[in-house]
Design a protein around this nucleic acid. Structure first.
Lengths: 119, 119
DNA sequence: TAAAGTAGGTACTTAAAAGTAACTAGTGCA
DNA sequence: TGCACTAGTTACTTTTAAGTACCTACTTTA
């Protein structure tokens, strides 16, 4: 990935998009947003299909970016709970706006496809 | 990329994010948004560092998603002009909101880093 | 005559990301 | 006794995306 200095490397929009882009990421945030705090195992089951490795990677990245908060209880067995941090909640209006657009486009496209099929 | 059916494959937010996520994509849209319609070669020079292959890929993808409009004039040499389509403009409020958040976080983080260094 | 510009396409290589499987420690349970 | 549970980690393999380099046809310009 060349991306010479002075172009997109310093673009703050890209920095945020890079957090959201990988597979599963928005889905993880969606679950924490709508279902509330979740433990590692619950999250893994609810996301469905994600490996422990990738889930850990995503959570570590989101934690480092302070979108998600990690609460570790050193009980036996250990209990780790993830929740949406304030910064994660700041994304909500943006994600809602994005969802509106995405749903509208999806609807438009399926209507166009149906019209196409009827002709 | 496993992503079993019924999870993120059908998530419309992910469908839109997948359009924006690759390197260069938001930068291409940014140029069309702020500088207006641009020809292929101009775009390539202004993005700076992108290869013709990847620029073509991105433009084809954005065209297929109807975010960008491609105007081909079969002159010699051919003249191809790309412009932001209505759908591309629909993203503007969302991208502006994202930019606000991204700039705020960047500022917060650099202030925190400066404070850290001063201690 | 040869280079440069037009808008790409094609083949090949490389690097990053994702997936898979096995492993950890300590306890509860059958 | 041995498996399952907790929340991961590690090593290895595969897939995907991106980068590099070279090619096209036709014209203008030096």
């Amino acid at each position: 990935m060349a991306s010479p200095a002075g172009t997109r490397n310093e673009c703050p929009i890209d920095a945020v998009l890079r957090l959201l882009m990988g597979p599963w990421t928005t889905y993880i945030l969606y679950i924490l947003r709508t279902q509330g705090p979740r433990r590692f195992g619950e999250l893994k089951r609810e996301v469905g299909g994600i490996s422990a490795k990738v889930l850990t990677e995503r959570l570590r990245m989101l934690e480092e970016a302070r979108l998600v908060h990690r609460d570790y209880q050193a009980t036996i067995p250990p209990q780790v709970t993830y929740s949406l941090a304030p910064r994660g909640a700041e994304l909500n209006p943006m994600l809602d706006a994005l969802k509106d657009i995405a749903l509208r486009w999806q609807k438009e496209d399926s209507q166009a496809a149906a019209k196409q099929a009827a002709e």
